[in-house]
Design a protein around this nucleic acid. Structure first.
Length: 777
DNA sequence: CAGTGAGCGAGCTTCCGCTTGACTT
């Protein structure tokens, strides 16, 4: 029995709030949305003003039943879901499903979890904002329409099981377009000239001054000519300028900036960051981790100030209010910060500790003083020519927040220049050049996206929400539109011309460029689908589509537009496009003709097949007389857009027949797991040193025999009762094999002592593959 | 796990946002 029932979205939040409210209040959670559109039959009544058909989500049935029971017993029900569009809708769905009566239902909101904020909210209840709810319904219905009308077009025109959506399709487009920019990028080189000067101070001590020429030279000849002029030149300081500068700390973390920093500083993937943060949140160590707000509660500001004073003195304190700049932010929560600012570190896994430390430092730094710098620029004249050398130096006068935290950047090739100390110099000082160097440098191609960099770009475009960034990144990888990979760089030659002791020498050096680690690459499917969608549905592929509809959702929320009228305006022309594409669009296979095989004179093409990208030798003839074309899947690392004729022709050289062994054929080919030898329906991987195009029968037989030997050793036990059952020794220790299926042995059992019955029990009680597949989802 | 790409047709796939476990590996 209780007087007041408060319903929030998250159970961890419920626990904290219950503590603040005390006697007379029970706080529980809905675990997010409790209803959604029906999944089959579209879930929207297109004939009846787009009426949504809601059902209680299967995994929420239990929660809803419990909530119903609790609501019945309560005197007053307080709907305390988040103060944003989705939160308002959750409150409304709760009211509908729990059949709450207006007279004892109250809607309250707070965007920080502090005692003040919550007691204040209780004092100021309101009713549900139906306009805001309508805006959410419009958002939901639009996403369902886009996703469920466009995806089936892809099934028909490209490949079954594909998907399209307002968010995911644009995310893939970003990756595809970046890849094309990179492919088309022409790198240019120029010579960058640096010099080292010797400076004598009052006491006669020599120090070095590094300077860079204000211009670059396009050719080695020009660079050479310049260095020639330096041989006889006099160098004079023409100008010394000192300018004060400052650096300000970064904002407190939001979901997206946390994902970016954790990726750069800790090497976490986006979903890894979120699951570690979730654990920190559930154990009460940080505030809510899905947020777009940079706001800190006044209580948090106060405690942060105290902590900075304690650690660094009050000179280092500067309390700041940050404003959210990201598009479409809804700010239902605080920024991500430690719950208790005086806790510098926490127990837990090393991942939890490192992420917590990052959050703690960022929060502290955000309330610390600016760093004060002094930038010095020295300009050096050259008597024989008009170009000038420039030396820059930066000295930190007051470190401020830099004591605790430096935000990192995505820039590659950031060769930390300008941090050097500049010796005391004055105009008209003469300098002695000790050496000069002209180094050939290349313009940088645009960078490939990391997961976190893609999230950053999506946020800039106002696409997706804090709760969906990680799932979206996962979805486009699961659909195989995009892969996260490492790729090796290539060697590149560059020229260095050096002037020292009046001698000029040129040298060619090599460097590795373009190495990629954990970057996102589009797959062939991703490219074909993106091209198809741009051809047929430009509107939803437009980077501004989300921003445009968001404006309309805002108008609905303000009561200036009616939600189903807005949807109707979108749906009519959109649906026409869907019908048009379904009827008229050509089947899209991303076909590319590579050329003619010089041996057979047949055409070689690459395209998307039922099972992925393939190469085809010869054309399917209309008469049916000619022989069928040959097919071969592309290998890992080969792509429709980049594969060459030679590479494609190589594919048809396999499988090769090597000869016979024990009366059965031996063939060699390349499969999903690399090159293999096949004999008597058994497969043996080739070694790293073996080349599938040249390996001989002798070596193949050797490999087959080695494999047999190894298999024999792996068998720990066979059973007389049933020859199908085997106890084997694998990479992870002993396991059971029964009729081609593998079974794990529980840790509590000693594998060697198991009887036939024990083993069969494990086999029979193992979960069937069908339930496993459901569990995966 | 190491193929497949003839053609037909049944039955399935799919969205975004709000939440937290229950699952393997």
């Amino acid at each position: 029995m209780h007087k007041n029932l408060v319903i929030v979205e998250s159970p961890a939040k419920a626990k904290t709030i219950e503590r603040f409210l005390g006697e007379g209040y029970v706080v529980t959670s809905s675990m997010g949305h409790i209803r959604d559109l029906e999944k089959k039959d579209f879930g929207i009544d297109l004939e009846n003003k787009y009426q949504p058909k809601y059902i209680v989500t299967p995994d929420k049935k239990k929660i809803v039943a419990e909530l119903k029971k609790m609501a019945k017993e309560a005197e007053t029900v307080w709907l305390a879901s988040d103060e944003d569009r989705e939160g308002e809708a959750i409150a409304w769905h709760l009211k509908e499903v729990l059949k709450l009566k207006p007279e004892n239902t109250k809607r309250i909101v707070f965007h920080e979890i502090t005692k003040d904020a919550i007691t204040n909210a209780i004092k100021n209840p309101r009713s549900i904002d139906t306009h805001l709810v309508d805006a959410q319904q419009a958002r939901r219905v639009l996403d369902r329409i886009v996703g469920f009308e466009v995806s089936p077009v892809l099934w028909k025109k490209v490949k079954p099981s594909l998907s399209a959506g307002r968010v995911q399709s644009v995310a893939v487009r970003l990756i595809v377009e970046r890849e094309r920019e990179i492919r088309e990028f022409q790198s240019e080189s120029a010579f960058r000239v640096t010099a080292v000067f010797l400076v004598k101070d009052a006491a006669g001590n020599l120090s070095e001054l590094k300077a860079e020429l204000s211009e670059r030279f396009k050719t080695a000849e020009e660079a050479n000519a310049f260095l020639e002029k330096c041989k006889t030149a006099e160098f004079t300081v023409s100008d010394v300028v000192k300018k004060p500068g400052k650096r300000t700390p970064a904002q407190p973390f939001t979901t997206s900036t946390l994902q970016q920093e954790a990726s750069r500083k800790l090497g976490f993937s986006v979903s890894q960051t979120m699951s570690v943060a979730q654990r920190l949140y559930e154990s009460g160590k940080i505030t809510y981790m899905r947020t777009d707000s940079v706001n800190l509660s006044s209580l948090a500001l106060d405690n942060t100030r105290k902590k900075i004073e304690e650690l660094h003195g009050d000179k280092y304190v500067k309390i700041r209010k940050f404003k959210t700049t990201s598009k479409g932010a809804q700010e239902a929560h605080e920024a991500i910060r430690p719950t208790y600012m005086d806790q510098e570190n926490v127990d837990g896994t090393s991942q939890e500790q490192r992420l917590y430390e990052l959050i703690w430092k960022r929060t502290i730094a955000s309330q610390m003083a600016d760093a004060i710098l002094e930038r010095t620029t020295v300009t050096i004249d050259i008597s024989t020519t008009g170009e000038k050398f420039v030396a820059t130096g930066e000295v930190i006068v007051f470190d401020g927040f830099l004591r605790v935290y430096i935000e990192s950047t995505d820039d590659e090739g950031n060769n930390g220049n300008g941090d050097s100390l500049i010796p005391p110099l004055f105009a008209k000082d003469k300098l002695v050049m000790s050496e000069a160097m002209a180094t050939e440098r290349f313009t940088q191609r645009p960078p490939r996206y990391t997961e976190a960099a893609l999230v950053k770009r999506l946020e800039e475009l106002g696409i997706g929400r804090p709760s969906t960034y990680a799932p979206t990144i996962t979805t486009i990888q699961n659909r195989n539109y995009v892969v996260k990979e490492d790729r090796p760089g290539v060697e590149r030659e560059f020229t260095v011309i050096k002037l020292k002791n009046s001698v000029i020498k040129a040298k060619v050096k090599t460097e590795i460029t373009g190495t990629e680690k954990n970057k996102l690459f589009p797959t062939d499917i991703g490219i074909v689908v993106t091209d198809f969608l741009i051809d047929n549905f430009v509107q939803i592929m437009d980077y501004n589509f989300t921003a445009d509809v968001e404006k309309e959702f805002d108008e609905i929320a303000d009561g200036k537009k009616v939600w189903n009228e807005m949807i109707d305006k979108f749906y009519k022309p959109f649906h026409k496009k869907v019908e048009d594409a379904t009827q008229n669009a050509e089947r899209s296979k991303g076909e590319r003709i590579l050329g003619i095989d010089p041996k057979t004179g047949k055409q070689v093409t690459v395209k998307i097949g039922r099972f992925g990208p393939l190469a085809q030798l010869g054309e399917a003839s209309a008469e049916g007389e000619e022989e069928k074309p040959q097919f071969s899947s592309l290998r890992a690392g080969q792509h429709i857009e980049t594969i060459t004729l030679e590479e494609a022709l190589d594919l048809f050289k396999l499988p090769r027949e090597l000869g016979n062994f024990e009366g059965k054929k031996v063939t060699v080919a390349i499969g999903r797991f690399g090159p293999y030898v096949r004999h008597d329906n058994k497969f043996v991987s080739l070694g790293k040193e073996d080349d599938p195009y040249s390996v001989g029968l002798e070596r193949a037989v050797e490999l087959i025999k080695m494999k047999r030997d190894k298999d024999e050793k792996a068998v720990l036990k066979v059973f007389e009762e049933d020859a199908d059952l085997q106890l084997l020794n694998g990479r992870w220790g002993p396991y059971l094999k029964y009729k081609k299926k593998n079974f794990k042995i529980p840790k509590s059992v000693k594998a060697g002592q198991m009887s036939f019955e024990d083993c069969m029990k494990i086999v029979n009680e193992a979960p069937s593959p069908k339930t496993r597949r459901i569990a995966k989802k």
